[in-house]
Each structure stands twice: as C-alpha cells, then as structure tokens.
C-alpha cells in the first residue's frame, strides 16, 4: 500500500469518526427520549402546558414558546446592530480601522457564556427590576444578553457576504449617479441578501442553543410568558436546570426535550445551508 493511500484512509477514518460521534449522540438522545414522547403522546408532550415531572405531567409547550420569544427578542436586538456593523466594516470605515475592529468583534465570540450570564445578572437584571418592575429575571434581560451574544455570528457572515460582492455592482451604481448610501441600501444589501439571511439563521441557532447564560438570567419559570418582563424557560434551560436530580421518566422527558431541540437546530441549519447555496449560485 502506498504511503499516500494510507494517509488518505487515515484521514477518511478521522472524518468518519467525527461524523459517527454525531450519529452516536443522536442515537442515544432518541433512544432515551422517544419512548417517553410515545408514552405521553406526542401532542400532549409538545402542546401540553403543565410541567410537573414528579406528578407525571410533561408538557413542554411553555418552553417551546419561551425559546421562541427569547430568540425573536435576541434578533430584534442583534439584527439591526449586526447588519449595521457589517455595513460599516465593509463599506464605511477605513481599512486600517476595520483591521482593528474585526478582531475585537471576534473577541465577543470568545467570551464564555457564563460571563455574559453573570454580567446580565449583576447589571441588567437589577436595572430592569428597579426601572420596569417584575422580578428582573425576564425575557427582556435574556433577549438583550443573547442579542449581544449573536452579534459576532451575524457581523462576520454578513460582512463576508458584502465583501464577496463583485466590485462592478458598486461601481455601476455609483456611476449611475447613486449616492454611497443609496448604493448600500438599494444595491449591496439586496445583493448580499442570502448571506445575511444565512447569518440570521445561524445566529438564531446560537440563540436557541444557549444554556448557561439563560439559566442565570431568565428565571426559569415553566410557565407561559405573558409579557417581556415575565420569567421564561427555554428548551435548553429545561434540560440544564433539572438534569441534576432527574431519574426515570423525568430524565427521559429531558432527553425528549433534547429530541425537540435536535429537530429545531437541524431545521435551522438546513435553512442556513439552503440560503447560502442560493447566494453562491
């Protein structure tokens, strides 16, 4: 066997092993979680609104709603900021300044989520409690923190897609007499649409998956939230906060929560893939 073929197979093995880990995790989650969904009934598991595992009620609808609102909130905060920042970096700033700013934004992604959570708990939560009322541990606090956490994802992917546009788009628009702003707003942003959409979807994936910071600042009430000042529980925090002592059906219900999350994340990632392919075509 030639050396090259040997190496080739070696790398194939490594690549397969990382995929098989994914497969193993998925297999395990499904084996543990699906029987309980079957037992409770898919409908009452997904749409039930009472979560009393010790009494045998496993309804995760409030958590699905909680994940949804926190994610939407994070997008409301992170999307305008992120896209504006990407436009600034790719179009409006001096290249040298962009070289300084870019690594700083990347640094945002490197901060451990527990630090974001701690900051939210110490700074944002008391601020919201004192100025707006309620317990402070709320969807609002969670959305603000998550909005900051998804910034690096949105900024770097949006900026890449803006910079990947052919120079001719910009030159054409400017030579037709459009102002710089009109060029950005009417030509560049629509042209980079698919990349920006992909960045939003990946940001959503990040937001839905975030656990530690959310356990610290959402308050974790397993109740349908009625306002942004209410506490909420997301799918991930449901697993994170209760896994310590969960046994039997309760433990399986947490795995079943994982199954639901698995499908949501898979869906979002496939969407992101579709959009970014469309952009390239």
């Amino acid at each position: 066997m030639t050396r090259e073929r040997f190496l080739e197979r070696g790398f194939l093995l490594i690549a397969l092993s990382s995929i098989s880990i994914l497969g193993l995790i998925a297999f395990f989650i499904f084996v543990e979680g699906v029987p309980l969904m079957w037992k409770t009934g898919l409908e009452s598991f997904l749409l039930g609104d009472r979560w009393y595992p010790s009494k045998g009620s496993f309804g995760i609808f409030p958590m699905i709603v909680g994940s949804f609102w926190v994610t939407v909130g994070a997008l409301i905060v992170g999307l305008p900021l992120g896209v504006a920042c990407a436009v600034y970096l790719s179009e409006l700033t001096h290249p040298t300044l962009a070289m300084v700013l870019r690594p700083m934004i990347q640094l945002l992604a490197a901060i451990p989520s527990v630090i974001y959570g701690f900051w939210g708990l110490i700074v944002l939560v008391p601020l919201i409690r004192e100025s707006l009322g309620g317990p402070g541990l709320s969807i609002l606090a969670g959305s603000l923190v998550l909005g900051i956490m998804i910034l690096p994802t949105i900024i770097s992917i949006s900026e890449d897609s803006l910079r990947a546009l052919p120079r001719t788009y910009k030159e054409g628009a400017l030579s037709l007499g459009a102002t710089h702003w009109q060029t950005i707003w009417r030509v560049l942003l629509p042209a980079a649409r698919s990349g920006i959409v992909a960045s939003i979807i990946l940001g959503m994936g990040r937001a839905i998956g975030e656990t530690m910071a959310m356990i610290m600042i959402l308050g974790n009430a397993a109740q349908m939230p009625h306002s942004i000042l209410n506490s909420a529980r997301t799918l991930t925090t449901n697993i994170g906060i209760e896994m310590g002592y969960a046994t039997g059906d309760h433990r399986q219900a947490l795995f079943a929560t994982g199954v639901v999350l698995f499908f949501i994340i898979m869906g979002l990632n496939s969407l992101a893939l579709i959009f970014s392919r469309k952009g390239r075509a």
């Binding site: 409030p62 317990p135 009430a221 397993a222 109740q223 906060i241």
Partner: peptide
Amino acid sequence: KEISLGALVQD
C-alpha cells in the same frame, strides 16, 4: 397543593 408554575426556578 402544587407549587405555582409561575414561580422562578433556581437550581
């Protein structure tokens, strides 16, 4: 009686 679902939960 059950503890209200609206209660904040800390671990």
